[in-house]
Lab assay of single mutants.
Amino acid sequence: MKTQEELTEIVRDHFSDMGEAATLYVQVYESSLESLVGGVIFEDGRHYTFVYENEDLVYE
């Protein structure tokens, strides 16, 4: 099982292909040891929320 830090790095790496991230945040109260819930805000103003669970990243 991966730590939240490892899950955060996986998510950060995925979003790095989409541009320069200004902020990546984790909603600790919705996350667990198995999943990471949060969002990313890019330098150009785009904002996505995400759920990373079971090696699957879903974002909108």
Results as ranks from 00 to 15, higher is better:
residue 60 E to C: 14
residue 54 N to I: 10
residue 42 F to R: 01
residue 27 Q to W: 14
residue 21 A to H: 11
residue 56 D to R: 15
residue 19 G to A: 05
residue 21 A to S: 09
residue 14 H to T: 05
residue 40 V to L: 05
residue 29 Y to G: 03
residue 11 V to C: 13
residue 26 V to H: 00
residue 54 N to G: 08
residue 2 K to M: 08
residue 14 H to E: 04
residue 33 L to S: 12
residue 56 D to L: 15
residue 53 E to M: 13
residue 5 E to S: 07
residue 11 V to M: 05
residue 51 V to G: 01
residue 17 D to E: 13
residue 26 V to R: 00
residue 46 R to M: 04
residue 39 G to D: 07
residue 20 E to N: 12
residue 10 I to R: 07
residue 41 I to G: 00
residue 24 L to G: 02
residue 55 E to T: 06
residue 40 V to I: 14
residue 17 D to P: 09
residue 51 V to D: 01
residue 42 F to P: 00
residue 35 S to G: 06
residue 32 S to P: 02
residue 52 Y to S: 00
residue 41 I to T: 05
residue 47 H to K: 05
residue 28 V to F: 14
residue 30 E to R: 05
residue 25 Y to L: 06
residue 12 R to C: 15
residue 39 G to L: 14
residue 17 D to S: 15
residue 20 E to S: 12
residue 53 E to F: 13
residue 50 F to M: 00
residue 7 L to N: 02
residue 49 T to N: 04
residue 19 G to Q: 04
residue 35 S to N: 05
residue 21 A to L: 15
residue 54 N to A: 07
residue 59 Y to P: 02
residue 37 V to R: 13
residue 29 Y to S: 04
residue 1 M to Y: 09
residue 18 M to K: 06
residue 23 T to F: 14
residue 10 I to C: 13
residue 9 E to G: 07
residue 39 G to I: 15
residue 13 D to T: 13
residue 48 Y to M: 04
residue 27 Q to V: 15
residue 17 D to C: 15
residue 38 G to C: 13
residue 30 E to D: 14
residue 19 G to L: 08
residue 52 Y to Q: 00
residue 5 E to H: 07
residue 49 T to H: 13
residue 58 V to A: 07
residue 10 I to Q: 04
residue 10 I to S: 03
residue 22 A to S: 08
residue 46 R to D: 03
residue 37 V to A: 07
residue 21 A to G: 13
residue 22 A to F: 15
residue 53 E to N: 07
residue 36 L to Q: 01
residue 28 V to W: 14
residue 51 V to I: 10
residue 58 V to T: 10
residue 22 A to G: 09
residue 10 I to T: 03
residue 28 V to P: 01
residue 55 E to V: 07
residue 24 L to N: 00
residue 58 V to G: 04
residue 47 H to T: 04
residue 44 D to M: 06
residue 44 D to L: 08
residue 8 T to I: 15
residue 18 M to L: 09
residue 5 E to F: 10
residue 15 F to S: 01
residue 7 L to S: 01
residue 27 Q to F: 14
residue 16 S to F: 09
residue 7 L to C: 11
residue 15 F to E: 02
residue 48 Y to Q: 00
residue 34 E to L: 08
residue 18 M to Q: 04
residue 22 A to V: 14
residue 57 L to N: 03
residue 19 G to H: 06
residue 45 G to M: 02
residue 38 G to D: 01
residue 37 V to C: 12
residue 13 D to W: 12
residue 2 K to Y: 06
residue 12 R to S: 04
residue 32 S to C: 12
residue 14 H to S: 05
residue 32 S to I: 08
residue 29 Y to K: 01
residue 16 S to N: 08
residue 52 Y to E: 00
residue 21 A to R: 09
residue 29 Y to I: 05
residue 9 E to A: 13
residue 46 R to V: 05
residue 48 Y to R: 00
residue 38 G to M: 11
residue 60 E to N: 07
residue 31 S to K: 08
residue 6 E to D: 06
residue 43 E to K: 13
residue 48 Y to I: 07
residue 26 V to K: 00
residue 38 G to N: 02
residue 58 V to W: 12
residue 14 H to D: 03
residue 10 I to Y: 04
residue 30 E to W: 13
residue 40 V to F: 04
residue 36 L to S: 01
residue 3 T to L: 06
residue 7 L to M: 06
residue 7 L to T: 05
residue 8 T to K: 08
residue 20 E to Q: 11
residue 26 V to Y: 06
residue 52 Y to I: 06
residue 34 E to H: 09
residue 35 S to Y: 15
residue 12 R to T: 04
residue 29 Y to A: 03
residue 15 F to K: 01
residue 11 V to L: 06
residue 23 T to W: 14
residue 32 S to V: 09
residue 6 E to M: 09
residue 16 S to A: 12
residue 46 R to P: 03
residue 55 E to L: 10
residue 25 Y to G: 02
residue 60 E to A: 09
residue 59 Y to K: 01
residue 53 E to D: 06
residue 39 G to E: 13
residue 24 L to F: 12
residue 58 V to L: 10
residue 5 E to Q: 10
residue 38 G to A: 08
residue 44 D to F: 13
residue 48 Y to T: 00
residue 36 L to A: 03
residue 7 L to V: 04
residue 50 F to P: 01
residue 60 E to H: 11
residue 39 G to W: 15
residue 31 S to T: 06
residue 2 K to I: 08
residue 53 E to S: 12
residue 51 V to W: 11
residue 4 Q to E: 07
residue 32 S to M: 08
residue 19 G to S: 04
residue 36 L to H: 00
residue 54 N to E: 04
residue 48 Y to V: 04
residue 15 F to P: 02
residue 17 D to G: 14
residue 8 T to A: 10
residue 45 G to F: 11
residue 41 I to K: 04
residue 56 D to C: 15
residue 12 R to M: 11
residue 34 E to S: 13
residue 20 E to H: 12
residue 55 E to P: 03
residue 55 E to W: 10
residue 39 G to K: 08
residue 29 Y to E: 03
residue 1 M to I: 10
residue 57 L to A: 02
residue 51 V to A: 04
residue 55 E to D: 12
residue 20 E to R: 12
residue 25 Y to W: 06
residue 22 A to P: 10
residue 57 L to E: 02
residue 53 E to A: 13
residue 38 G to K: 01
residue 36 L to R: 00
residue 52 Y to F: 08
residue 29 Y to V: 03
residue 30 E to C: 15
residue 57 L to W: 05
residue 48 Y to E: 00
residue 38 G to F: 13
residue 56 D to I: 15
residue 42 F to H: 00
residue 29 Y to L: 05
residue 57 L to M: 06
residue 55 E to K: 11
residue 44 D to V: 10
residue 21 A to E: 08
residue 3 T to E: 03
residue 21 A to F: 14
residue 59 Y to T: 04
residue 13 D to Q: 15
residue 45 G to I: 07
residue 60 E to T: 12
residue 37 V to E: 03
residue 50 F to E: 01
residue 42 F to K: 00
residue 53 E to Y: 11
residue 24 L to W: 10
residue 33 L to A: 10
residue 23 T to I: 14
residue 28 V to C: 15
residue 17 D to V: 13
residue 15 F to A: 03
residue 18 M to R: 06
residue 15 F to T: 01
residue 6 E to R: 07
residue 59 Y to H: 06
residue 11 V to F: 06
residue 7 L to Y: 04
residue 15 F to Q: 03
residue 26 V to L: 05
residue 49 T to Q: 06
residue 10 I to D: 02
residue 27 Q to D: 13
residue 13 D to V: 14
residue 50 F to Q: 00
residue 51 V to K: 09
residue 26 V to M: 02
residue 51 V to M: 05
residue 56 D to W: 14
residue 43 E to G: 10
residue 47 H to I: 09
residue 48 Y to D: 00
residue 47 H to C: 13
residue 6 E to V: 06
residue 58 V to Q: 09
residue 51 V to P: 00
residue 3 T to I: 04
residue 3 T to V: 05
residue 19 G to P: 03
residue 5 E to L: 08
residue 30 E to F: 13
residue 9 E to H: 08
residue 16 S to M: 10
residue 55 E to Q: 11
residue 2 K to C: 14
residue 30 E to Y: 13
residue 46 R to K: 04
residue 33 L to D: 06
residue 5 E to I: 08
residue 48 Y to F: 11
residue 58 V to M: 08
residue 44 D to K: 01
residue 30 E to H: 10
residue 10 I to G: 02
residue 30 E to G: 05
residue 31 S to C: 11
